[in-house]
Design a protein around this nucleic acid. Structure first.
Lengths: 342, 342
DNA sequence: TTGTATGCGTTATCAG
DNA sequence: CTGATAACGCATACAA
């Protein structure tokens, strides 16, 4: 047997011969309602197993108590860690989390954003797809007063809220560590040139070299589309050089995995003949035998939590009070170099 | 500058001096509306950037076009793979995905389920928390005609829809493979005894031994609470035996990681002195030097996709038509033994 | 072919 | 302290 309709305040009101407004107020502990009435209402509500209809409330209040989370890929460890943190935070605030994954396809990104907008999410946390170049679809949401906080993959603009990670601290530390070991021929295998993430790494790479008076050799910087083939090709190029690198900084851990395989195929001993330093995506290097010397940790959990915190501060701000000078909350965590004990 | 109110059909109606019903019908390509009117409406809608208000529609239609997904932990690779698949499937059907993680805490599970119910999700996909023993909170949803499809961690009942994985095929194959290599002292490190997942593994383990006429030695079956300490303790016990095992089947990959570390600490060579076979959670064994001989693959992506498919078939079924004999859709995939080339 | 009226469940405003 | 009423945005049965 199954009930089709959940009980409503109307029903409670009818059974108690009082008005719906009284019921509504009683359930909200409104001070103007007498204690007796309040109790009677609450008791019947309990008996009937009454639960407020969220759809109705969302509709009426123009507020859904739902935040949207749009990430490139839910199955990547980095992002699933993040989403786990977001869900935990949101659930303490009694908010729901609606998810979407762009799969790094800008079209999907636009569609999902549209869908989230129509769903009237109260706010969004977004990590921008790798291949996104425009910003209009985000602007549209701002237009409708749906706050967005960007997270990790942030757009190159100053007029946005974000929580991100400063690659510089960890990456310079990485170069410093290598130099301290007497290694100066340090290569960078970077991601696609158009990515913001790649540009950052490149700049810091240059800066790091300069700080240690290491001349920049263009051949020591390769790029890959991050496919396995691309990754191996980049390694091929580096090792066909007259002076191949003694250390390689890789765009991310997945690339590092391929790079390590490639190095081993050349009979090189990891952390002896060749050193790797990578940007952390994977939680399990410690279990692996052949791993980078160190990882540049970006703290997805921290970033995500902070982004959620910012989002809630924005959503909780009185919508009526127009802020004269919009001030953007921008939090940057320092990345850290985590040495893997070997 | 920001607009507070999104355009509504009312607004369109007013600007066009027609009624809201006409607008509504025009936007739905209702055949009774004249071509000209329809076009005029659609054009203005386009101009105004009109988007139907989801909250209002959900409210009116008593349908949210949202499915809820409740899993133990979003950051585990197994589940994030699953959720990625669910999201992909749902998005093709224009459904949204609301997520919740129980963190294996039954109380959280109840709360989240309650929240999903109040949110009037159209259906749910659930992987039951490890520590859940009761079933009432699920029954309640059924009661309100919210279909549930269980996935992977399913309750021990026959009156539910589910998509799960048959561990037997892969696990028997595993034992067979070991026996074919001449190995008969095969241990099992199992999870907590109260888990359904553990019971299954144990039974199949017994069955497998019997099939090959291997006597069961109780000392060869250890359990762990899956903490690092518990895992190492289990290994300690096995290796303090007079005849320690030559092969170990581990409850899951995380346990295998610890077990491999423990074996190495004893100067054993993996896949020579000792063999491991594990239940697959991790996608990256292929990159690891010391890995199990094989993994018992449970196809989270397939399972999740099937669960979603079942859920949609249930949601799309005419709610008016009462099925006389409720028939439960129960799909079981065979697990497969994936040998890791070494 | 189009318009009018109604209701979904809740809250807020006003009036008593 | 409590009740009547309107409103939120949309879809639909009914009327014209």
């Amino acid at each position: 047997m199954s009930i089709n309709r959940l009980p409503t305040i109307k029903e409670i009101a009818r059974k108690l011969n009082i008005s719906t407004s009284t019921v509504s107020r009683a359930l909200h502990d409104h001070p103007s309602i007498g204690w007796v009435t309040t109790m009677r209402v609450k008791q019947l509500a309990e008996e009937l197993n009454y639960e407020p209809n969220f759809s109705a409330i969302s509709f009426k209040q123009r507020k859904t108590f739902t935040i949207g989370v749009l990430l490139p890929n839910l199955s990547e460890a980095f992002f699933s860690t993040a989403i786990s943190g977001i869900e935990e935070f949101a659930s303490t605030k009694k908010y729901n989390v609606l998810i979407g994954q762009s799969l790094d396809d800008p079209e999907r990104e636009v569609r999902i954003l549209e869908s989230m907008k129509n769903h009237r999410v109260d706010g969004m946390i977004v990590s921008v797809s790798k291949n996104t170049t425009s910003f209009e679809h985000f602007e549209q949401l701002q237009h409708y007063n749906i706050p967005i906080v960007f997270f990790d993959c942030i757009p190159e603009r100053t007029d946005v809220h974000y929580s991100a990670c400063n690659l510089q601290t960890g990456m310079l530390k990485a170069i410093e560590t290598l130099v301290a070991k007497g290694i100066t021929n340090i290569a960078l295998i970077n991601g696609p040139a158009h990515l913001n993430a790649s540009k950052q790494r490149q700049q810091i790479y240059f800066k790091g070299l300069k700080m240690h008076n290491i001349p920049y050799d263009p051949q020591m910087m390769q790029t890959t589309d991050l496919s396995k083939e691309g990754n191996l090709a980049a390694m091929d190029k580096l090792f066909s050089l007259e002076h191949p690198p003694k250390a390689i900084i890789t765009f991310n851990d997945y690339l590092a995995l391929d790079a390590i395989v490639a190095a081993k195929a050349r009979n090189m001993v990891i952390n002896k003949d060749i050193y790797f330093i990578s940007f952390a995506n994977l939680p399990i290097w410690s279990y692996m035998n052949e791993r980078p010397l160190a990882s540049i940790e970006q703290f997805p959990h921290l970033q995500a939590e902070k982004a959620t915190e910012i989002l809630f501060s924005l959503m909780e701000a009185e919508p009526g009070i127009e802020v004269k000078k919009p001030c953007y909350q921008q939090v940057i965590f320092d990345s850290e170099l985590i040495l893997h004990s070997l």
